[in-house]
Computed example of a mutant assay.
Amino acid sequence: MNFFKSHFRYNKRQRNGIFFLLLIIITLQSIFFFVDFSSEKIIDFSTSEILVFQAKIDSLKNIELEKKKPKIYPFNPNYITDYKGYQLGMSIDEIDKLLLFRSKGEFINSVKQFQKITKVNDSLLKVISPYFKFPDWVTKQSNSTTTLIRNNSKHIVIKDINLATISDLRIVNGIGEKLAERIIDYRAKLKGFSFNNQLYEVWNLDKELVDKVLQYFKVKKLPNIKKLNINEASFKEVLSIVYIDYELTKKIFNYRDEVAEIQDIDEIKKIEGFPIEKFDRIALYLVAE
């Protein structure tokens, strides 16, 4: 008991110290409770320095957002896929309308026609149309199956080159049976002519003769070419395309192995040594799905 009592026995000086300590604690608590320490000073966030600083921050944020946005390269709108359309901001309905139109073997030849087919709104069209890249050879084609033109004071009936027979072609001065057969054979390799100027690719058929042929025959109805899925096609299938040789086929398959899956057919333009001038023709036979 004496042990505990010794801890609670204080002399007068100690008791005075304890009393003053309690007094200080109570005083500080009272001040904290009754005195308002909140500042009445209002910070003006509209000052020029703060506005300039905020503008710099917003500018840096916008730069970062622009960097994160996928960069859009010029492209042919005829080959927009589901994934590409989603990236551009098109709705599913708009993409489906485009794909339905293309499934009929038809081609879009102008910005106005693109909007007419897809029904995209003006604001979206204004954003994406500057990136549309139509081939140089794109021209408006008549919907009729035959066209009458005047040449050397006489009417000529222009027929569909994809329906022409050997005897039909021989009406052109300078086209004999062998040249006519060569045109038909090349048409078969292409699975049908898609562009008038593909006639210039026929072996040993000079420009003057092609010019004569095109006075009588043109592409009136596009062929229905079944495209190969580039992510599933075999080496032999890709090599069979007229515009792709063995070396280019190897490069395409090496690129496909590197990226695991090609998301958009436009990607093959990135392949080193790819013949950009042939892309529109190659794209007739390949699709990325």
Score class of each variant (00 low, 15 high):
Tyr131Ser: 07
Gly89His: 03
Lys178Gln: 13
Arg182Gln: 15
Gln14Asn: 13
Ser194Leu: 01
Glu272Leu: 09
Glu272Ser: 14
Asn62Tyr: 07
Thr139Asn: 13
Gln87Pro: 01
Ile184Lys: 15
Asn151Trp: 11
Glu181Asp: 04
Asn197Val: 01
Leu51Asn: 11
Lys154Asp: 08
Glu267Arg: 08
Ile31His: 06
Val111Met: 00
Gln198Phe: 11
Asp257Ile: 03
Thr81Asp: 14
Trp203Ser: 12
Arg102Cys: 08
Ile43Tyr: 11
Asn121Gln: 05
Leu163Arg: 15
Asp58Lys: 15
Asn11Cys: 12
Phe20Leu: 10
Phe253Asp: 01
Gln29Ile: 14
Leu28Gly: 12
Lys191Gln: 11
Asn196Ser: 11
Arg9Trp: 10
Gln263Trp: 01
Gly174His: 08
Ile184Asp: 11
Asn151Ile: 10
Ser6Trp: 09
Asn224Gln: 10
Phe132Glu: 02
Ser129Cys: 06
Ser167Glu: 15
Arg256Gln: 09
Ser142Leu: 14
Phe134His: 09
Pro77Met: 00
Tyr186Asp: 03
Leu148Ile: 14
Val52Cys: 01
Ser110Thr: 05
Asn204Glu: 09
Phe53Glu: 14
Lys218Met: 05
Arg256Gly: 09
Leu286Trp: 06
Ala283Tyr: 02
Asp136Lys: 14
Tyr243Asp: 09
Ile80Asn: 02
Thr146Tyr: 14
Glu237Asp: 12
Glu237Trp: 05
Val219Cys: 02
Leu23Asn: 05
Asp245Cys: 05
Lys97Val: 01
Glu64Val: 13
Ser30Gly: 10
Pro223Trp: 03
Ile43Cys: 00
Lys133Ser: 15
Arg13Ile: 10
Ile43Glu: 09
Leu88Trp: 02
Gln87Asp: 06
Ile95Ser: 09
Glu66Asp: 14
Ile108Gln: 00
Ser240Phe: 00
Ile18Leu: 14
Phe195Lys: 15
Thr165Cys: 04
Ile271Gln: 11
Asn196Lys: 10
Arg102Trp: 00
Ile252Glu: 06
Val219Ala: 02
Asp264Gln: 05
Thr47Gln: 13
Tyr79Gln: 03
Phe34Pro: 04
Ile31Arg: 00
Asn2Ile: 13
Pro135Ile: 01
Gln87Arg: 13
Pro135Cys: 03
Ser39Tyr: 08
Lys12Leu: 08
Gln54Val: 09
Glu201Ala: 08
Lys61His: 05
Gly176Thr: 07
Ile25Glu: 04
Ile25Ser: 14
Gly89Asn: 04
Lys140Ile: 10
